[in-house]
Computed example of a mutant assay.
Amino acid sequence: MRKAVLFIISLTLSTIAFGQINQNQNLTNNWRFGGGLGLSFGNDSYFGFNISPSIGYMVSTNLEVGGIAGYQHLSNNYYKRNLFNVGPYINFFPIENIFVRANYVYYTGKETYRTKNLQYETISESYNVEESALWLGAGYQTSGPIKFQVGAMYNVLYKDNDTGIFSSGFQPFMGVSVGL
Rank of each mutant, 00 (worst) to 15 (best):
G35W: 15
F92G: 10
L118S: 13
L63T: 03
N77G: 07
S132K: 04
G67H: 11
D160S: 09
S10Q: 00
I90M: 13
N22Q: 06
S177I: 15
I16H: 02
N50D: 00
T112E: 14
N161H: 12
A133P: 12
M174L: 15
G151Q: 11
R2T: 09
T122F: 03
Q149C: 05
L6N: 08
S14C: 09
F173V: 05
P88I: 01
E131D: 00
L13R: 06
R81K: 13
N91C: 01
I123H: 02
N97G: 08
E64N: 11
I16E: 06
G67Q: 11
G144F: 04
K159C: 09
I9C: 07
G144Q: 04
L27D: 07
Y154K: 01
G164R: 04
G164W: 03
G151F: 02
K147Y: 07
A69R: 03
N103V: 02
I21H: 05
H73V: 00
F173Y: 15
Y127P: 02
I51K: 06
F33A: 15
V5R: 05
G66F: 00
N82K: 01
G35I: 03
Y79W: 00
A152S: 13
G42Y: 11
Q141C: 02
G139Q: 01
G169V: 00
Q72P: 04
Y107D: 08
I146K: 06
E111D: 06
L180K: 11
A152E: 10
G109R: 08
Y113Q: 04
I95L: 11
I68S: 13
R2Y: 04
S126V: 02
Y113W: 13
P145M: 09
V86K: 04
V105Y: 06
I8C: 03
V105E: 14
A133M: 03
F173H: 12
Y154E: 08
K159N: 11
L118M: 13
Q171W: 12
A133Y: 05
T28K: 15
R114Q: 07
I8A: 10
E111Q: 13
Y78A: 12
S143D: 12
S52V: 07
N85F: 14
I51N: 08
P88Y: 09
V178H: 10
R101H: 01
P88M: 07
S14N: 09
A102N: 06
S124H: 07
L180E: 12
L37N: 09
F7M: 06
A102T: 12
K116C: 06
V65K: 08
F33N: 06
E121T: 10
N22L: 09
W135R: 01
S167H: 02
I21S: 05
P53N: 01
T163S: 13
L83A: 02
A17C: 07
Y78P: 04
S132D: 14
Y71P: 11
E111A: 03
F49T: 01
Q171V: 09
S168D: 10
L83N: 08
G66W: 14
H73S: 14
V178I: 15
G19Q: 05
I9R: 00
N26G: 03
F93K: 10
P88H: 00
I16A: 04
V129S: 08
M153T: 05
I68E: 15
